[in-house]
Design a protein around this nucleic acid. Sequence first.
DNA 1: TGTACATCAGTGAACGCGCGTTCACTGATGTAC
DNA 2: TGTACATCAGTGAACGCGCGTTCACTGATGTAC
Lengths: 222, 222
Amino acid sequence: MSAGEHPARSSYHHGDLREALLQAAEALLEEAGVQGLTLRACARRAGVSHAAPKHHFADASVLLSEVAARSFDRLTTALREDREAKASAEAVIIGVFRTYVAFARGYPSHFRLMFRWDAMSSDSEVLRVAATRTFAEMTTSITRQRGDSDVTAETLTERIRERGLQNDVILAWSQIHGYAQLLLEGQFASFAESGDSTLDAFVERTVVENGRRLFRVLEESG
Amino acid sequence: MSAGEHPARSSYHHGDLREALLQAAEALLEEAGVQGLTLRACARRAGVSHAAPKHHFADASVLLSEVAARSFDRLTTALREDREAKASAEAVIIGVFRTYVAFARGYPSHFRLMFRWDAMSSDSEVLRVAATRTFAEMTTSITRQRGDSDVTAETLTERIRERGLQNDVILAWSQIHGYAQLLLEGQFASFAESGDSTLDAFVERTVVENGRRLFRVLEESG
DNA sequence: TGTACATCAGTGAACGCGCGTTCACTGATGTAC
DNA sequence: TGTACATCAGTGAACGCGCGTTCACTGATGTAC
């Protein structure tokens, strides 16, 4: 009940079906992936008739957009908290790397969804805003500029370009994202097996080593 | 007819339905993505009854595995040809970057499929071999070691580990793959719009710049 | 304080869709003799 | 060289499935008076 699953309703109306559907969608996403997330499945999980979701979400893609937006928010928060806890610039970079990868490993289906714009509603404002916030937070760590969480994507990229930091951002983001993606799809499996005792150990070691190298590259250019 | 689409057969039997289905699958993949690739759709496109594919592919995931294997082969060839045409070590690294990204842009759905192991048959030997070949080819360029195209994934990673090149490979692959992935999902759109005249120009510029930086990082450690 | 009514979230039956699967069949090909 | 037969790729009708969508409905809530 605490997670809002199959609540034994006393009333005809649900109370907060919209929220219940979002929670059902998050659970389904991790259990069955994007494929398994249908409006009917969400309705079942929320303990409601299959036509009910139409009153809150026109489409599965709209629901997915909101789920992805929440995921971006969660990642943004994790990144900011880690950054604020770090003293040195190098520790911040390694921290971004570690946090990003930990998020991908902790919520693999959410992570995959966040970069599958084809599966989501293209004109979702909440999603656009949430993604931009994550991007702004990463930029803050990478470029060591003061963050501005309510900036639009356009002014943010314009600001980055003016200060000649475009390549730093692209390079850092590419490296971190690529690592997370390849790790998630099991491409590093043979590496991990041939050396470290556990996958956790492999990840921690390579994240720190590559994070250090990334930091040095960013230093050189700055 | 040249692409094997809707051939007006004279005979009751197709002749080479297996090949025709693979070509239909490749075309459908780029047109409709992984979602749109069903056995029935492939049969339709090959001009054959919907039950016919069962004689060649037990499952859509098996068909997808073979398509992905072909994609890996195509990428491997492109990477090798580019490498053999380059003189300097730096040109080779930039070439890998450019070729990898060009492939992702040229065949976006194929590229996405190649890293979606959940959609494919997990025990496909052709796929495993093809993916390892691509990986070996990239390793050759990144580490400047002589390539061995028929090595297994296990011995390849073991060899890399022994020579202390694991981090170079992980770093380079992560950066290149991450760039391709983020570019494909439109994450660099605002960057490209705010500066360069065309997306092609943006890609070429940033690939060269980041390729140079990647080369320098690899130099330092070696 | 009570009554009438509008509103709207949730119901459940019905429909059409495309999918994978099954199965008796048909027709082409190759092989044994 | 010809005939009988096994083999197997491809057919087409049928089935069940889960999905999204529609629609007349039901029941709870809030508001006007």
